[in-house]
Amino acid sequence: MLLSVEDFGIEFHDHDKPEKVVEGVSFTLDKGEILGIVGESGSGKSMTALAIAGLLPRKKLIKEGRILFEGEDVLTMERHKLRGLQGDEICMIFQEPMTALNPTMKIGTQVEEALRIHHTDMNDAARKERALKWLKNVELEDPERVYGSYPHQLSGGMRQRVMIAAAMVGEPQLLIADEPTTALDVTVQAQIIKLLQKLNKESKIAILFISHDLSLIRQISHNVLVMQNGHLVEKGAVDDIFEHPVQEYTKKLISAIPKVEL
């Protein structure tokens, strides 16, 4: 078992009255597993994902429960220890590939950054070689050119591939993908899903795949969590969830999927 989330909750204290946005969430994720989290917008998926990646704001919110990564709680871990995991063991890609990259830094530098932080023994040439390998692995044409480009010179799909390469470069155990295809058009979306599946097979990386889109979740996940209003309402293997949903909410979500797809 790679990740174990136990009775996790978040309460915001940045307004007049405290606001519980996630409550009592428990689940586990095995090595090499693809776990999908599905739920309407505002159901707490991103907050849960950010918490696992150690990216929640440090102020004005209370975190409850435990998030054990390889047995250690990322919620209470010392900062420097958490930073040691980030980019090396746990990586994250986001919904908006257009803004997730630094506009004034070359792609190559950004892809290599995790190596610069975590693999200080590597020299420039080795880092570049590794970065190019990953730019190629994410199926970018002409990796050399992409390496020397700036983000604005690439399309949204290419930037999301760059984000994936930058995440994979440290060869982490867990990739958190929060709505990674929502901002992309349908053909690019399908390519990115295929790419994530390929990486999962080849690198045995566990993926926490978050989407409000049930058909994507069904396509990619081994196991699925259904979230509603900050609560986990149902969890199980992908086929069980889609063929024999137990909860009314899950049934309602599934019946809302357009039937046209093959």
């Binding site: 990646a53 990216l55 900062r79 930073r83 040691g84 995991l85 980030q86 980019g87 090396d88 990586c91 994250m92 986001f94 908006e96 803004t99 997730a100 990259l101 630094n102 506009p103 004034t104 830094m105 950054e113 995790a114 932080i117 975590h118 984000m163 930058a166 995440a167 440290g170």
Partner: peptide, 23 residues
């Protein structure tokens, strides 16, 4: 957003500020 990305790679606040934000 790119600042959050930088944090996700394990950079410290000072590294994020000097390497990403300042320019």
């Amino acid at each position: 957003d790119y600042v959050r990305t930088a944090y996700s790679r394990g950079l410290s606040t000072m590294e994020v500020l000097y390497r990403h934000v300042l320019k």
